[in-house]
Design a protein around this nucleic acid. Sequence first.
DNA 1: GAAATAGTGTCTCTGAGACAGTATGAC
DNA 2: GTCATACTGTCTCAGAGACACTATTTC
Lengths: 251, 251
Amino acid sequence: MPYDPSAFPPFAVTVDLVVLTVRNHALCALVVRRGEPPFQGRWALPGGFVRAEEDLEAAAARELKEETGLRSHEPDGSDAGAHLEQLATYGDPQRDPRMRVVSVAHLVLAPDLPAPTAGGDARSARWATADSLLGSGDGMAREGDQAVPLAFDHDRILLDGVERARSKIEYSSLATAFCPPEFTVGELRRVYEAVWGVALDPRNFHRKVTGTPGFLVPTGGTTTRQGGRPAQLFRAGGATLLNPPMLRPEV
Amino acid sequence: MPYDPSAFPPFAVTVDLVVLTVRNHALCALVVRRGEPPFQGRWALPGGFVRAEEDLEAAAARELKEETGLRSHEPDGSDAGAHLEQLATYGDPQRDPRMRVVSVAHLVLAPDLPAPTAGGDARSARWATADSLLGSGDGMAREGDQAVPLAFDHDRILLDGVERARSKIEYSSLATAFCPPEFTVGELRRVYEAVWGVALDPRNFHRKVTGTPGFLVPTGGTTTRQGGRPAQLFRAGGATLLNPPMLRPEV
DNA sequence: GAAATAGTGTCTCTGAGACAGTATGAC
DNA sequence: GTCATACTGTCTCAGAGACACTATTTC
């Protein structure tokens, strides 16, 4: 097939967002209720069309802002914005019943937030635990007792996003993206426990994270917001790749 | 922006391929010479348009077949095809000077092959070492003594593909995708050495790979094609994730 | 015989996990 | 005081890396 720009099939390109946070010791994802067909009334991942002169990452950052008010991280690392990275691209010809849509999914990791602000085209938005959305592996989202799958192929996209997050906090410092700017070792441990769904030994965890160079930087302050003995406050250090990595138990 | 399929910007969607192999103890990538503008006469990654009713992975497999004659791996793992996986998607509005093109890059890992068959729209195709294409980090492809960058943003795509391959053989059994169906421990070690650009201790490597469950399965045969004492032949075992992982030195 | 590659044994050091014990707050 | 959490120390075991040594081929 010659590379002929005048004869290409028409595609729509969208971005979809897997926005994850940790709330109440559980990994949660942001879902919005669809206001129009297809899948009207069903829950879906936030997202929308890429504009004609817009980069993919810019489109993802714009949708994130519109749906949650969150800013994404600046490349210089200067702000407290959420982490945003490209996840994967989904282009099954049948994934949207109306037309050919290729969606570039992005993964967003954010600290715990107030209730989401439903903006733009979303009738409503909410945080749902990843477990309830992914069900027992049957791809059904639980709403009350009713099992309803997410719209389009968003179950698959969410699963890929959750798995990316679970593996990436092993060898990178990304778990700090789920924490506020200052946090304790115990709070960071609860992030790992929520994302992996396991219990970790607090003593070994403490020794490990404080001993990994560049992971945590003490800020000097302390807090007792978890009760018990005051805990040192830390912020994320400059390291992005952890060496040695954090190991997920029972792999 | 409402999800309105009748008002979307026009996009072209392509697949580009980072096809890697190991030849003469060096990691090599497949490049094709462009026959038309833009970037006429320059080297580029193989690729082409996604067809109207074609899945992204199917388009990548089709382009691979057209440009190299290689079949990609069937999902049931029954054949000896090359490994193919999605890499990332590149959609800078300026990446193609003619129009808005979003390219879904795929990574292909293949055993050493005869000279590539230039098919379809490629004037010619060749294997070039990753080092020569990536230069000293300056993004220039060497041809003789002349430094010529790859077309479009293919330098960036190639770099991402090489980095994916380098990291993925650490924790998966994908290094066997560079080997013929039956291979020796020494041949597998030379794959790691070529991809990582390091020297590994043959004795520790042997103990490690033969001790990792599910990585290698002895076929019973032996070969002396490397000279010296006859070496056992192995084929890839069922394991895809290695536990414990192979560790890249000096990280 | 020399040279080359394959494969085993053994030592040391690092780090993960188990878990005892101490420190410091709220009540 | 009790309770909860933070933090430190110590033990054991697995595995990575260094490297001596043996095995089996070609020349």
